[in-house]
């Protein structure tokens, strides 16, 4: 469904992506892992067109994403941002129903609110949260609202950018479970970037490791522990010693 072929992206002299090849099948949950600063977020932003790759191709259903009609292309995606990226001038329900209040998916205001409240319920938040402002919510609640917003228009493809960063282990577990459940029940294709190995095991069908600007290893999550790749082994076990250079 999504295919990346030889994607390069640099910033000035720094080359972040050096030829990424990756494919994600329909209905699959792909998790991309890698250390901080390895270009995971850049990869995701290149797919969404938030950044332009220097070279290479990104295909969605065989079509180059640069040739796709932008609105129709974006309407297929939902995204949960690392910090939530909720619009702090809008109440929670308008954040969730943002897409349903304007543009090609516009619905009557009352209907949009009902959908927002339903999506909030789906992520474990009651209707009393709907009229609060994002600044009045805890970090975990903001993530849930971000998740509700990502799924509000029932997209085919959902991206999760570091979904558990900044959460306590219990809340992280709750978010992981929610992501797994929602992706399964919607039949959506999911791509998650994270360095939280608990998330990887909870969410992934397939795992790809990004290192030095390329996909170092990719395969089913069940084969990850027995990959025999020293880079992947060091990463998943969190060892300071190994082929991946660390600063001390």
């Amino acid at each position: 469904m999504i295919e990346l072929v030889g994607v390069h992206k640099g910033f000035g002299a720094k080359q972040v992506l050096r030829g990424v090849d990756l494919s994600i099948n329909r209905g699959e949950s792909m998790v991309v892992i890698g250390g901080s600063g390895t270009g995971k977020s850049v990869l995701l932003k290149c797919i969404l067109g938030l950044m332009e790759p220097d070279s290479g191709q990104i295909l969605l259903d065989g079509q180059d994403v640069r040739e796709a009609e932008r609105d129709a292309f974006l309407a297929r995606f939902g995204m949960l941002f690392q910090g939530g990226a909720l619009f702090d001038s809008l109440p929670v329900w308008q954040n969730v129903a943002f897409r349903l209040l304007r543009g090609r998916l516009k619905r009557p205001r009352e209907e949009a609110r009902e959908i927002a409240v339903e999506k909030l319920r789906r992520v474990g938040l009651g209707p009393e949260v709907a009229d609060l402002l994002p600044a009045e919510l805890s970090g975990g609640m903001q993530k849930r609202v971000g998740l509700a917003r990502a799924i509000a228009a029932e997209p085919e493809i959902i991206f999760f950018d570091e979904p558990t960063t900044g959460l306590d282990p219990i809340m992280a577990g709750v978010i992981n479970e929610l992501i797994r459940e929602i992706v399964t029940e919607m039949g959506a294709t999911a791509m998650t970037i994270t360095h939280d190995m608990t998330s990887v095991r909870a969410i992934a069908d397939k795992v790809a490791m990004l290192h030095a600007g390329k996909i170092r290893w990719s395969g089913p999550v069940g084969e990850m522990d027995a990959s025999g790749d020293p880079y992947l082994d060091q990463f998943i076990h969190g060892r300071a010693e190994g082929p991946i250079e660390t600063l001390r």
Partner: peptide, 19 residues
């Protein structure tokens, strides 16, 4: 306001929400 939206990825979120 807009700069804060930029650094907290709210501008990127707008784009992904087809706005």
């Amino acid at each position: 306001e807009i700069a804060t939206m930029r650094v907290t990825e709210q501008i990127d979120a707008l784009v992904t929400l087809s706005t």
